[in-house]
Design a protein around this nucleic acid. Sequence first.
DNA 1: GCCGTTTTCGGCCCGACTGTTTTCAGTCG
Length: 581
Amino acid sequence: MNNKQVAGILHTYGDYLEISGENAFRVGAYRKAARAIENSRQAVADLEDLTSLPGVGKGTATVIAEILSTGKLLALEELKEALPPELPKLLNVPGLGPKSIYTLHKELGVRNLQDLRDVAEGQKIRGLSGFGPKKEQKILEGLEQLHARPERILLHEADLVAYRLLSQIQDMQEVKRVQLAGSIRRRKETIKDIDFVLSTLDPITVAKQIVSLPEVQEVVNHGDTKVSIIVKVEEIVVSCDVRLVTEEQFASALHHFTGSKDHNVRVRQRAKQMGLKVSEYGVENTESGETITFSSEQEFFDHLHLPYIIPELREDRGEMEQGDKANLPDLIEQHDYCGDLHMHTLYSDGANSILEMALAAKERGYEYIAITDHSRSLQVASGLSIKELEEQWKEIEDVNRQLKGEGITVLKGTEMDILPDGTLDFPDEVLRELDIVIAAIHINFRQSEEVMTRRILNAMENPYVNIIAHPTGRKLLQRDSYPVNLEKLFQTAKETGTILELNANPHRLDLNDEQLKRMKEEYGLMTAINTDAHSIEGLGMLPYGIATARRGWLRKEDVLNTLTLTELKKLLGSKRAKMNK
DNA sequence: GCCGTTTTCGGCCCGACTGTTTTCAGTCG
């Protein structure tokens, strides 16, 4: 049993207990334990003392031990017998929580979504105490919404919607300040809803203006301090929450609604120990009852004796402990970035020429780029034959001559396929001529973990392979990673001097934030942030890579692309020198 | 169920909105 499986059972147990009417704190305790296991770096099966996990005491330790030894949990099996198997699915219906589900099941015998629809349509819900016609209507609407739109959207899609709204809200006369908050501000890879915080003297007028914006499809909530709407921009439908506060409250509200939830809990626990109470409106001194407000988040953190914690770090992954010790890393910034090492041109499946890509890169202030078109096997992406690759080298040399003195250098590269049997698509004689070699898997994802891992290890053991592109192969909201043993990849990367990429494409972000953090902290490895651009515009996806690196606690020195051209060439050459000895 | 530099009992982060009520419970973030 791995950590994910154990945590999964605990989460399910929590769901079942909750809809059985169990004490909410007990339910919360199991969920907290499940999160602790998910976040644990050690395999829970190997732990000597389960209660060393935060939030795991004697009771939960016994439960975990049972799951580990038998693969299941008797108490959960019994609950599953006693309750209809599809009942937990009702938790996904917006506006419907555990208490209501419990009542609906007990009083009306509701077992699944269909039953729920039937009793709502049959107007049977309104007769229950605590329920009425509006609640009944809300449940029907919730059932509609359940399948109407995707649960989450990608960060770059959220940005498109968010900035469209932000500029309009900014222009409203009564609005003093407005800023994005929530997961979009923390730059999380996918977004459930977009949060805005604004300050104004006239919340009622501003709220009215917001609900009548042209992008608004539906008004979910409309209060004096909070407005919830569903908006549509270019086929992207997403819900947005807007919080309206006074100018004095703005900094506290911004922090509160930026989250994450777990981070906020930690902040409040800390404040409580200091005799303070934190809310979205300010910090109250429990003894004197006086509430202090702040003009910036910086002041807010100062007041709690913490350094400023940037939004990307607010995930309760150690930022409070490290902040307390003044030990937070100096994170990479976009201006540290010197060049992109993974991009495609007209030679394979890109949209622009080598010269166009080079000029665009120069425009962005880069010192170098690498042209890495696909290799011969990947015919769906017009992979290059050896002959075509050699023709490309001539063109790259031409472009370099043409751009001499312009401060930009084009490197000869390839994104070479790792074939299903683990061999490489080009022979060493060809690879030797290249400045940089990226290897990647694009076909045969369905092999076993052992075979997939072996394929990649083979590539890493080749002296000419510098980088493994998108190492897990996942596509966000589309497909999971192929099975691969990341620990073995990290270990071999360390031994061979191969670099695992952070692919900045917002559909990939592969490796992800947590994997990057682990790779750096436990193996001391650097990454390469590349856009994998297929056009000039694709180069502009870099911020998504930088943000993910920051969420992974990476500093400038943890990223290959911050090296100067001279340093880069030296580092790329060092693997060959070492392995060809 | 967990947890303790006031604590081994009595809290558990905190508040808005909605729909149901006539003072509050449930849900959400």
